[in-house]
Write a protein that binds this DNA or RNA. Structure first.
Lengths: 107, 107
DNA sequence: TTGATATGCAAGTAATTACTTGCATATAAT
DNA sequence: ATTATATGCAAGTAATTACTTGCATATCAA
């Protein structure tokens, strides 16, 4: 699976986006701390986090028996480069023209 | 379903992202033209496009029996505002510190 | 008006995804 | 040592998603 696929799939779920927000608000949380904010089992959260790790959006450090989670914003920058910046503005002129009834193929 | 949910779900599928790319390369294509680039049935493509429309990423205009598809980049800008800009850089300092063995909770 | 083209609608199947339950292991606290 | 805490692993279920097949409708061309 491509890097972009992993990324977009990771972002596709509201719970996973919430996890990113939680880490944004306070980086380095343990699994247990993250679980406290979501109403699902610890396992479910673990699986969401695994996906985020797979997309390289979250990095992990063990401290004793605790697993600390850190946000990695780099892949999001790549989304911007590939998917946002590229699509910036100019568009929709053609649509407007059509809607105004020009309806043609010719200039 | 929230607007953001629709958006991220729409972007989660590679075929749908390909459709956006196709429209970026050449806006205003018909359904048939789009189908020619994907190896799945017309119905499948229709369903993908419906999702993109639902996320407001694609707008449609009928010309006779043809359905023309246009890219709308505005929602992508919103993704940027909410999900990229916000997460810009500073991060990961805490992680680096930990990895270097400071391992502490205190400043 | 007949036939071909462009598309829609609806129900079904197959694959994937989100989430759970149950048990196991390792670190920490007493 | 014993118990409690923090987490992992694995298999199962339920829901969702991607895609198909079959038939219907509307526009265009001859």
């Amino acid at each position: 699976m491509s890097e972009a696929d992993l990324l977009f799939k990771a972002l596709a779920d509201p719970s996973r986006r919430k996890l990113l927000d939680l880490l944004y608000a306070h980086d380095g949380r343990t699994l247990g701390q993250l679980c406290a904010h979501l109403s699902m089992t610890r396992q479910a959260v673990t699986q969401h986090l695994a996906l985020l790790e797979g997309a390289n959006l979250v990095a992990v450090v063990w401290r004793g028996r605790e697993k600390l989670h850190f946000l990695n914003p780099v892949p999001l920058q790549q989304v911007y480069e590939r998917w946002i910046r590229k699509f910036e503005r100019p568009r929709l002129a053609a649509l407007d023209a059509l809607k105004k009834g020009l309806e043609g193929d010719e200039p």
